[in-house]
Design a protein around this nucleic acid. Structure first.
Lengths: 202, 202
DNA sequence: TCTCACATGTAACCAGTTACATGATTAT
DNA sequence: ATAATCATGTAACTGGTTACATGTGAGA
């Protein structure tokens, strides 16, 4: 049982779906390609953690709809209570920013500006999916959390992260502006050199 | 040339170091185990992108100090200007939060509280490394960025991310408090059900 | 003596990506 | 025709982790 397996079970616990749909939904949770998903679905089925039924379609190719079993649910519940493994973020942009002093400032600014527009896009999309998907939780047992709780708080988290990255990019751009030659000279004259204090090797 | 190779070159461009030190520094940039680093260093040396010299030590075992070559620098500079690959974050905590509706609320709160203390720790450490490492950029060519620029903005970014996660955890906890049975009942009576609006499947 | 930090390496395995392979249905 | 979306699968390869293997020097 690897993490992807639990990500799949979590998604299926929320709503049964096909391998194809799974691949789309997992993108926000634990990204995976279909070539990794299909063999794992097969294995999880063999282990009795999920079932599937063939669904015939006329407008689209037929598909298999996977659902979590009771056994799968228990396996998932046990896993949730365990302390999570440390998170890993792999971002080439970080490395490029780290080494940006090697290239000219215009290249760096270009990289950041491209990231800014990318973030603007993502934030707009995220806000749309947050506001579009309104939900009334009427029929829920008030003692239990709704299954919409997880997706909701995750959407919120993603939006916050995107906003944060946007703000950071802006901050770096202003820093770069401030550090341009003329301003640096001015600071040198007026003795205000403190901005570049607190710079250190990680 | 994979991303780790560029992460290594970026670090060596900042300061020559041993494979052992490299493994520590890469943690903030592109985490890797020494078992992945040493063979790659060998390969990068064969390709002429870096050199090394044996350094004898009396208090500690001898080591190899790796440095980037001019060829390596050029290779790195070319890579930096290219658009970065999309970033990937893999965090089991996300999945556990997503599926938290399956387990009882106390387990969920425990998970979040553990994350909160973890974040408090990390934030304190990050702030310490930011304030401890003061730097004066006197001898730099003002037209060029200092090599301390990258590490500095990255430290800042990490701190922001940790603060953001801390705040999000707090937010989820208050949400959970608000959604507890008695409060829900109160809301039901007073008709204030809007808090659980905008909940949706991602 | 034994543990810890420093230091370097390889082997085996698991996780994840890219490429290969096939095919239905709809829209242009 | 032919491109796009939906749909499922396997094969080959690359990236990354865990385990194996060895050794130095300091301090408890």
């Amino acid at each position: 049982m690897n993490t992807l397996a639990y990500a799949i079970l979590s998604t299926l616990a929320n709503h049964p779906c096909s391998g194809y749909e799974l691949a789309e939904h997992l993108d926000a949770l634990w990204p995976a390609k279909h070539s990794q998903i299909y063999p794992l679905l097969k294995k999880l089925h063999q282990d009795g953690l999920l079932t599937f039924e063939h669904v015939m379609q006329t407008d689209k190719p037929n598909k298999k709809i996977f659902s979590i079993t009771e056994k799968g649910k228990k396996e998932l519940e046990n896993w949730i209570a365990e302390p999570p493994a440390i998170s890993v973020t792999r971002d080439e942009f970080f490395i490029k920013m780290y080494a940006s002093w090697l290239v000219n400032e215009e290249d760096t600014k270009k990289l950041i500006n491209e990231r800014l527009t990318e973030m603007e896009h993502k934030i707009a999309l995220r806000k749309a999916s947050l506001s579009k998907a309104e939900y009334k939780d009427g029929e829920q047992d008030p003692n239990k959390l709704s299954k919409h709780f997880g997706p909701y708080i995750l959407l919120n988290r993603k939006l916050r992260l995107e906003k944060e990255e946007f703000e950071w990019c802006k901050w770096v751009l202003t820093l770069l502006e401030k550090m341009s030659f003329n301003t640096l000279l001015f600071w040198f004259i007026s003795g205000k050199f403190s901005v570049i204090k607190e710079m250190a090797f990680i």
